[in-house]
Nucleic acid binder design. Structure first.
Lengths: 210, 210, 210, 210
DNA sequence: GATGAATGAGCGTTCATTCAT
DNA sequence: TATGAATGAACGCTCATTCAT
């Protein structure tokens, strides 16, 4: 549980941090094991003491990134207030605590791990499924929908919301295009989601944007 | 303009078709120039008569894919009816005519061209900017917003909508996860967008889903 | 059929010659692909145009060596004279035309290909079986033995004779230990075999040593 | 002398036993120091307390194997009866007590130590010389030959006989090809030798095969 | 003595790119 | 234009050996 609370504590974590940094700078393909090892101040041989191979590293990095992301989400969703507000908190946590504070993880997650190999892509599938399920559950809790139609509807929404968050993150945090006022961008994205959720809200649960 | 109306007409286009096929099957990293050449029934040497290098191929492929995508969008947006409906048509065209009919381009666009190299990533940035601008323009036309705030709002929406479409495409068309009823998925995604757009609509422009 | 009559004619053969030389000098383990390529005046990449990998090279080399060896044997066995004499010719051909003229093949065959990998060892098994069968057939022809007991006896003899030839070759040709008068060594080894064959000879087919 | 009477008594011997086992299973090249250490229940560091390096291990193993082999031979040769019979006993002892009971040593001796490195090959030369000298001595004792010609003749015979035994051992004990009735194989090999020895026997020392 | 984490030189192999034909 | 054999830099990975504890 505390295994990676501070990744730098262990050699294993140290290498992961170094890899994240190097990947963010050079891209996954452009970064060799030697680069990672150099950054982590170890030898290439030592790298293979902690990871089976480069693919294994990417998968572990993906795992860790998702663990971090879900932790921020879980904390936000457990905050006080009505469900919709807590949902909004989760969105804010994604932008601030993940995109902002763990930019390198974001880059690995959205950019470097895409289309790399069969195994990594399978891992991505699993990881996305997990995130989608989380969001789907939250939507169902908010909207109170029942039945398989409502479930599918909620799932499509979850996929949509996740896609939105991703692209906003890629656009404004990774590429740093468009408005630099990330707080406003974030607000508007969340309003968009809230209004999108409107159609499945039980009653007059929709309010004017803050 | 007519250069690629039918890619297979030219040698150049033939290679691009072959590359799309091979990339979709083996991934960009897993596919060598030799594989592409074999599929296109040419020699590796000939490949370099038409493309500077692999990167150039990817960039041209990206260009062509976006050209195709924008053509379907332009056609849909030019259809008859109120702006919101035409916007919806564009969404449908994306799913049916691009994701469905040009799956290989979709895969290149969303999977294989991600995080490949600096140059390709720059191209992606440019291409995404283009698409975002298209959508932003359409949103402004629909909502009639004015001023820089409305513009930024519209842009964030455009980014959000594009992200949604992407992830839905990736999830249901590339990974083929979740519901197999693509028509329903598509409907629900579009409803979600339409409701999201609600907050910036001039008046009671929102209707119940079809 | 004429594929390797003169190995140097083809690039493929050129590499094989180079490899034989390098292996004989540095041993199979001590010789890298780079060494072979340098000796053959090609690049490492070119090596892989002609051979799948190092193991494949060894197996092809083994194949070629055995082909050469069997050709000398076949030619000798087809000479004129009584069976026993022709058998003796084959022995002489082994020493002079294989051990003497193709020393590098001998070294690969008896030294470098031993215990290298599962695949190579399997190849060796097959190749030895072939040689043993050749000799077994010749013995049966000479002694006129019939039945399964005679066959097993002939096979054990064949294995024994082959082992003898091998060790004499290794001792005097590879290690170059003991007497330098290879002609005399060869004579005595062949006499030993002839006398050993005595026990299965039909009648008074045994003569005093020359 | 008593150092290895029971190899397992000492740590040193324990490692040697483990190495023999691992080499027989994985081949010398396929077996790493780590594998040997694991099998011997020690750490890789400890390995280097007892052996200078891998090469040293192989050389010591070769030494020990030959020591064991020569002990069985010496015991057999000291048995009662006429010289030729005692010689035959030695042959039987080789098959039963070495090939059969110490198969792992046989494998190291005939397969794994071949063509490994310059140093190991030198050791092999020395070790083979020793064995050849033993046999040469025995042959001279049996045949009563005198002079340098007889000596060379005896040496070639010794080399031949050793080669025979080797190949029979490799074929039937290591590869386990051909007849499974090892007793009969052994008988026939020994008869072959006895008859081969005939030419140098003083008088009518040759008998019909058993 | 005993450990086992750390090392790093070295290897086999790939593949985008070139160029003589 | 078209070819495809040739290139060689670059990579991932292994493993015998060392040494601080």
């Amino acid at each position: 549980m505390a295994k990676f609370r501070r990744m730098k504590d262990s050699r294993h974590g140290l290498i992961m941090e170094a890899a994240l940094k190097v990947f963010a700078e050079q891209g996954l393909v452009g970064a060799g094991i030697a680069d990672i090892a150099r950054t982590a101040n170890i030898s290439t041989g030592t790298f293979y003491l902690y990871f089976q191979n480069k693919e294994d590293l990417v998968i572990q990095l993906l795992d860790e990134s998702v663990r971090v992301l879900r932790r921020t989400q879980a904390k936000a969703i457990e905050s006080e207030g009505p469900p919709l507000l807590r949902f909004e908190h989760a969105g804010r946590a994604f932008f601030r605590e993940f995109c902002g504070d763990r930019r390198e993880m974001l880059i690995l997650f959205l950019r470097d791990s895409v289309g790399v190999s069969h195994l990594v892509e399978e891992k991505r599938k699993a990881v996305f499924q997990l995130m989608i399920d989380d969001i789907t559950g939250a939507i169902i809790r908010i909207t109170g929908g029942k039945g398989r139609v409502a479930r599918r509807k909620a799932q499509v929404m979850a996929v949509s919301i996740f896609g939105m968050m991703e692209r906003v993150a890629y656009h404004y945090y990774i590429w740093q295009m468009g408005s630099k006022d990330l707080r406003k961008v974030e607000d508007e994205a969340l309003v968009f989601i809230r209004d999108g959720l409107g159609s499945v809200m039980p009653k007059g649960g929709r309010r004017a944007p803050a």
